[in-house]
């Protein structure tokens, strides 16, 4: 049976965009699917051992300063040593997400993984770089909020009143997120076939000037709640 290890490279314990995207990739992957997360060196041994009999690895990583987060790079160096020594050959896929709206800002990260594959003698099967990661996450959280409201609405006002509202909300979320979701699902198909996926870039389907406006409003709201806006928000320190 085919074994695929999904390795989440987000440092966040819960609700990371990377885990969300890996979850979508994993939806249609056949065979054994193992979900792992690299947060510190204590995770290495467990994850490396799960690679021994694996066929595919899918990395889900956030874009940090145009590249791979440092704790993930440290893990990759260990993974290279381990896999070269044990002669483990894998097919590697990557799904990355950055905060900026342009998916193509993940290009350097993709090249880093391609170089990594050459070191490990893995088959580089490509990846998808997604722009607007934070918004994708906000959409996912909104989905659960809307679903909760839908249940409440159904109980109090009845299904016929609640359903159109929920359907409209669902449509908006799906509209903005659909490219990212479809690209992740397609990666799942490529994994099943053991086929190359190529390097692709996609994004939240919002024009960049609107996305920038939304991101600025988002950070103003968060910074009011967390207080940063009153502590020299944009000032030199």
């Amino acid at each position: 049976m085919m074994k695929t290890v999904l390795i989440n490279g987000s440092p966040k314990k819960r609700l990371s965009v990377s885990s969300y995207l890996l979850g979508i990739v994993g939806l249609l992957v056949k065979g054994e699917v193992v979900k792992e997360q690299v947060r510190n060196s204590g995770d290495y041994e467990r994850i490396l051992n799960s690679l021994v009999d694996a066929d595919n690895v899918v990395f889900g990583v956030p874009l940090y300063v145009d590249g791979v987060p440092s704790h993930m790079l440290a893990f990759m160096k260990e993974m290279e040593k381990f896999c070269v020594e044990k002669k483990i050959r894998l097919r590697l896929y990557v799904v990355s997400n950055g905060g900026f709206i342009e998916g193509s800002q993940n290009k350097a990260l993709m090249q880093i993984y391609e170089n990594f594959c050459k070191h490990c003698d893995f088959e580089w099967h490509g990846g998808v770089g997604i722009g607007g990661g934070v918004m994708l996450n906000v959409m996912r959280i909104m989905f659960f909020a809307y679903a909760g409201l839908f249940v409440l609405n159904t109980i109090t006002a009845g299904l016929t009143a609640a359903l159109p509202i929920f359907a409209e909300q669902l449509f908006v979320i799906l509209f903005f997120s659909c490219a990212a979701i479809l690209y992740c699902l397609r990666m799942g198909f490529a994994v099943n076939k053991g086929a190359g996926y190529g390097v692709k870039f996609t994004r939240i389907l919002l024009p960049s000037f609107l996305f920038i406006l939304a991101a600025d409003i988002f950070f103003v709201i968060i910074s009011i709640f967390q207080g940063g806006i009153f502590r020299g928000w944009l000032k030199r320190k």
Binding site: Y64, V65, G67, V68, P69, S70, H71, L73, A74, M76, K77, A108, Q111, I112, Y113, N115, F116, H119, K237
Partner: peptide, 18 residues
């Protein structure tokens, strides 16, 4: 490190987005 900074240097850069 694979055409990028070493993990130690990247750590400093990741911590500097302020």
């Amino acid at each position: 490190c694979y055409g990028a900074y070493s993990p130690a240097v990247k750590n400093v850069l990741d911590r500097s987005i302020g």
